[in-house]
């Protein structure tokens, strides 16, 4: 192994360690007996899981997270897929600029999005804050991912399959449900899972638009502000496991590579 190669390997190892070790350490400390987060670990326990689940408000927050994630996932998948299919039939220039417009929210800092939506809801339209405002707000930054993933799939879509189906006697709706949808469905599912992972993990936009309720991330924020105890690790790992699971599954299904 040459010097060149050793430097590269060392660098890559350090980068991976830097990216992954905080998450690995987190999982480790979920099972640590001591209430202090420090080495060396004295013993192992599942106590913190029960402590987390017993906290007042945990299950409401968990339930709210599931509701928000499910609604955001469903709505952004349907409208994002429709948009992507529609874009794939437009001419390249129109599709390109519309795509750039619809994915613009990804560039906005979440803080800006959160406070702008808060001001909009409370000062202008005057709706009470709650899960519905959170769901509406999440659509803005989750639908771009569905559009991107499904559009990428449509680039290699063979439109002759739709023509064939029509030629063989299918109505436009039959062709859509029997041909287009089954062929594209893995990408749609992938996009949906990524959208759900983003929604589940979001803190900033949720924080400003939820009013008095909690989802898991805002619940965790409350715990953080009140002083750290290891049951917070459990909540963190729960969020991480759910969003990670959805993402890995999503990328697997769409065979996304970078």
């Amino acid at each position: 192994m040459g010097l060149d190669r050793m430097i590269w390997t060392g660098f890559a190892t350090l980068t991976v360690l830097f990216m992954m070790s905080p998450l690995a350490v987190l999982v480790l400390f979920c099972f640590s007996e001591s209430p202090l987060l420090s080495f060396p670990i004295q013993g192992w326990t599942l106590h913190w899981f029960f402590a987390a689940f017993d906290r007042p408000g945990f299950f409401t927050a968990f339930q709210n997270s599931l509701i928000v994630t499910a609604c955001v996932g469903a709505v952004s998948t349907v409208i994002g897929t429709l948009a992507a299919l529609s874009l794939s039939r437009m001419n390249r220039r129109a599709a390109g600029s519309l795509m750039a417009l619809l994915t613009l929210p990804l560039m906005a800092p979440p803080l800006l999005l959160g406070i702008a939506l808060l001001t909009f809801y409370t000062s202008w339209v005057d709706v009470p804050l709650g899960l519905h405002t959170v769901i509406a707000s999440h659509l803005v930054f989750t639908q771009p991912f569905v559009i991107l993933v499904v559009s990428a799939r449509m680039l290699s879509f063979d439109f002759a399959t739709i023509d064939s189906a029509r030629d063989l006697g299918a109505s436009p709706l039959q062709a859509f449900f029997q041909i287009t949808l089954p062929i594209v469905s893995p990408s749609i599912l992938g996009g949906a899972l990524i959208a759900m992972a983003l929604s589940l993990d979001d803190f900033l936009v949720t924080f400003f638009t939820i009013g008095g309720n909690n989802t898991l991330p805002t619940f965790m924020w409350g715990m953080l502000r009140r002083g750290v105890d290891p049951s917070i690790n459990v909540v963190a790992v729960l969020i991480m496991a759910l969003s990670l699971g959805a993402t890995v599954l999503g990328f697997r299904i769409t065979r996304y590579r970078g």
């Binding site: 002759a160 399959t161 023509d163 064939s164 189906a165 030629d167 063989l168 006697g169 029997q178 062929i183």
Partner: peptide, 29 residues
């Protein structure tokens, strides 16, 4: 419309349905 015409077409690139078997493709119409 195409579905109402007594014509059938073999498309450039064929437009076969990738999620169906050969027999299902042929039997679709």
């Amino acid at each position: 419309k195409p579905e109402a015409r007594p014509t059938n077409m073999v498309f450039q690139g064929y437009g076969l349905f990738p999620h169906m078997t050969v027999a299902q493709n042929v039997g679709y119409g």
